[in-house]
Design a protein around this nucleic acid. Structure first.
Lengths: 257, 257
DNA sequence: CGCTGTGAACGGCTTCACAGCT
DNA sequence: AGCTGTGAAGCCGTTCACAGCG
């Protein structure tokens, strides 16, 4: 079947839209900050500002969780923190393993944000025998051979892949076979997983490329002209005769300056 | 203005939908792999599989760029690599600075995926004087005091923030004031930026929380039919029935172990 | 009165299915 | 015949604007 994203279109979720789920952690963070300052209640307007969204969206998001606000007043901070935590499943402890302890894996192991939210790094795993036993972030690195045992002994259902691209799919398969059903993938590859397994990917270079796209447009906005550069001649058989379309004919050359 | 996300709903882009832009890097990667294997052409079906999307989506995405395929044949790999690279602005060199050289910043500096795609790490910046001069990934770390000079000397328009959350907003403001107009933020904070500045955020703990949400639902699914929650949001009347709204101890700890 | 909760309108993205070119 | 390119339909998420409750 397909690769990458494993949403769940079939299983009638429970009514909470994916887009809303993705914002709950944001609200939770803002609420936690308020909680630490002992603020008792917030209005949707204030909380929305703190979370960087607009208030209508926030109210609609919360409406999927239930009626947790008080009209004329706002939301009770502590109560909402609890409800969102519960909804996200953060009232329980999630053991995670990190596979691939290079620069990035080590950074992840050291990242404080995990531990603070119910995630516990149960093990660090690397294929390099020389790494075995070496402590990273206070946790000894274990060899890949132990992967299956570690997963099952610790009841791990969430795995983080921080290996090179070439190793990722194989690691993924071993994780899944051992019982992992959620994967956070930092390797720049598309992972194939069976149904029922969720994959989220974080790809640093993709993010930069998206920024570059917008950046380019900004730059072009003032100057713009940007001729259609002659492409590196298609080596393919079919395209031999140049007659390419590109910024001719039906293509809307450039934006309205 | 608002915070966080700085799309651009106003500026009549150039017709390429944001969702499409976000996938172009994915296609580019798949195409690059094909190119390295000297594959001359691909069909939308094959390429879509390699990129982990469906073929109709891919064809529609490409249609925004122009008519780059050949009916009955497919797409010329080399040609498409060039076109997408150009569209993304990767035919030029983008100097970036990384601010905050902790574990994560160092990992980013070492990350090969940047250099390979037209991004050049122009400088590493950290607030810790003890770091100054120390080479990370072969590049000497410079002190924050130099930030403005570095940005302007190198014509940097893209900045990466990998500082602790507390420092991020201030660093952001200095970057923007110095001329940076695109920011990739790894700090777990909502950044406020003026119009015209793009921010993308990568938040590790948010990704895990989203996975935890789905993971929790999976667990509840097998255990039983899960509490009979109304599929849609409860209306005012229904809310009264399950007596929520009590910040005091009577909160029902649903959650099948 | 103030602020939440939400139906309804809107806009963007995805999917379908087939016309049209090679 | 094969595969791209695209109108049209459907779906999902966002925004609006106001009813409803405290």
């Amino acid at each position: 079947m397909a690769t990458g994203r494993t949403h769940r279109p079939a299983t009638r979720s429970r009514g909470i839209p994916e887009a809303t789920v993705a914002r709950l952690p944001l609200y939770l963070r803002a609420l936690t900050a308020l909680s630490e300052r002992s603020v008792p209640t917030v209005s949707s307007e204030e909380l929305a500002a703190a979370a960087g969204v607009n208030s209508a969206k926030l109210r609609k998001d919360f409406s999927y969780l239930g009626s947790y606000g008080t009209r004329g007043v706002g939301y009770d901070v502590e109560y909402l923190v609890y409800q969102i935590s519960r909804e996200l499943g953060l009232t329980q402890d999630w053991p995670v393993v990190i596979v691939g302890i290079g620069n990035l894996g080590a950074a992840l192991a050291n990242y404080g944000g995990f531990a603070s939210r119910g995630f516990r790094v149960a093990a660090l795993i690397d294929a390099d025998p020389a790494m075995a036993g070496k402590p990273v972030a206070g946790i000894p690195v274990q060899h890949t051979d132990e992967l299956e045992k570690i997963i099952s002994d610790n009841g791990v259902s969430i795995g983080v892949i921080a290996t090179p691209a070439g190793a990722a799919q194989q690691v993924c398969e071993r994780l899944v076979a051992a019982g992992v059903t959620s994967i956070l993938n930092f390797a720049p590859t598309v992972l194939s997983v069976p149904d029922g397994v969720d994959v989220r990917k974080v790809d640093l270079s993709i993010e930069l490329q998206i920024l570059a796209f917008h950046e380019q447009r900004k730059a072009g906005e003032e100057t713009e002209g940007e001729a259609a550069v002659p492409p590196a001649a298609p080596t393919g058989a079919a395209a031999a005769a140049d007659g390419r379309k590109g910024p001719d004919g039906d293509v809307p050359a450039v934006m309205p300056a």
